[in-house]
Design a protein around this nucleic acid. Sequence first.
DNA 1: GTTCTGACA
DNA 2: TGTCAGAA
Length: 152
Amino acid sequence: MEYLGRKDFIKSAFKTDIFKFRIGDLAQMTGVSTRQLRYWESKGIIESLSREGEQNARVYNYATYHRVQLIKDYLDEGYTLQAAVGKANDIMSAFAGFADIIYSAVQGVDTIDDQRMVDLGYFDAAKTQRLWASIDDNKEVHYHVKPVEDEQ
DNA sequence: GTTCTGACA
DNA sequence: TGTCAGAA
């Protein structure tokens, strides 16, 4: 695993693809047995990264962790494995690009008028205004459009 | 100690 | 799917 450094702290907070897990880790995290994980992989339901090391052990990424957890949840709800995989595929395709957009959209943070604000980048094509978001105690998000001049 | 494959219940 | 064996 790598650490991206302080400069990219905010971005690295969303950089989940640097996480790598072994089959034992994944089994503990999701409650899915190692036997099941190997079986699912043999069926093409999940994939592991290229193997490394003398043990030739499987390595899973963060996306696979989410996929396994998703399938496991549907399994617990009573779906068959096949149906659970179908459900998981639907959800994952619906959310395709979601993380990338959030990752790209967030530019940084700042404190404006004693309020914590998240910088969401330019609001208009002319780049004269910027979009900020704050969140209150009730977890309600508020948006603010501010002229670029104000911050400089 | 952990993981791998294959085999059997 | 669980569990075990024998090997890496």
